[in-house]
Design a protein around this nucleic acid. Sequence first.
DNA 1: CTTGTTATGTACCATACGGTATAGAATATA
DNA 2: TATATTCTATACCGTATGGTACATAACAAG
Lengths: 195, 195
Amino acid sequence: MPVGRPRAFDVDDALDRALEVFWEKGYEGATLPDLTQAMGINRPSMYAAFGNKEALFRKTIDRYINGHACHVKEAFAEPTAKEVVKHLLTRSIDMVTSSKTPRGCFLVQGALVCGESADPLRQELIKRRFAGEAALCDRFKQAMAEGDLPKDTDPADLARYVFVIAHGLSVQAAGGASKAKLNKVVELALRAWPG
Amino acid sequence: MPVGRPRAFDVDDALDRALEVFWEKGYEGATLPDLTQAMGINRPSMYAAFGNKEALFRKTIDRYINGHACHVKEAFAEPTAKEVVKHLLTRSIDMVTSSKTPRGCFLVQGALVCGESADPLRQELIKRRFAGEAALCDRFKQAMAEGDLPKDTDPADLARYVFVIAHGLSVQAAGGASKAKLNKVVELALRAWPG
DNA sequence: CTTGTTATGTACCATACGGTATAGAATATA
DNA sequence: TATATTCTATACCGTATGGTACATAACAAG
């Protein structure tokens, strides 16, 4: 139990609200009034709790990865590589078309392009996207060892293919494409599956 | 020959420079000093020639569609649907990984997300992306009539699939993926081709 | 050469941005 | 109850933003 006046808001709740704003408007499009109003706190409280706008954004990234995007890790538990991909893409569509959150993937929408000052954040998002791709590549290597994928498969190429699809789905979702229409895309994409 | 002092810069050249800035930094990330410096003119000249920042952006869209993105229309002239798609995606990769222009597709990077004031521009880019998809759908309908695609093909689904790939390639290119790596993705994607 | 017209360049404006100083309110310890 | 500590709230700061007034320069027409 800390000394002093207790905080009047929940940090994680506020972080979730901030995430939604960044997700919808991007780092540069989200202003401090946008953020603090959504978080239900005023500016000095935000600065005291999170540092500044950039630090706040960085904290929302972890919140996103471990929350909304947890289906990526979960998908790896599927028994076959094809089921992993199907799980990954289908659940991704559920998320990027959900009416409860902004459309698209935060790791794509957050800062695809930006001015110079926000470039470190753009790089961070690129890094996070690539981490997912690398993890899928590892899962494919395992599948190859298990005989679940042909020996001549290039796991990195295959993982990149899956993430190209995922990122494309994010762009389309942000453009208004429906869940049903995107699921048909996944159906087509899975026809390319090796073996 | 118009009356009055003649313009000291070429409008189309200036437009190309402005396009590059918007392309790299997005509408909101591009500031007026960024733009006017790249264009080699000062602010009042820009306002006199193009209206304002928003109007300038809108004009760069047409410039992009008819210039850098002309391969989309050109691809439709290929004899078969599969060759159309191969042409479209391969040339897209050349463009989004070119060292002469910013990485990625301007229609995706320009304003994927933004604050409220830029939302009309975001909508415009969505519209332009969808126009390409609709044109490809028409080309597929023609292919079906020619027996080049199976009768049970859904041309809209197929066109959406191709553009999901294209948009995903744009995101990956912006993240630093090489031309060779993206071409391997296209190779995989084309395995899904019907018939 | 004068006049009308259009472009340029400097200097400026109002506003919105991210960030902070400071005074007061709410709690724990003593 | 007194005091130290932390959070909240108003009000503010410097800067950068998109946009413009105005004086000047360069051309065509008369």
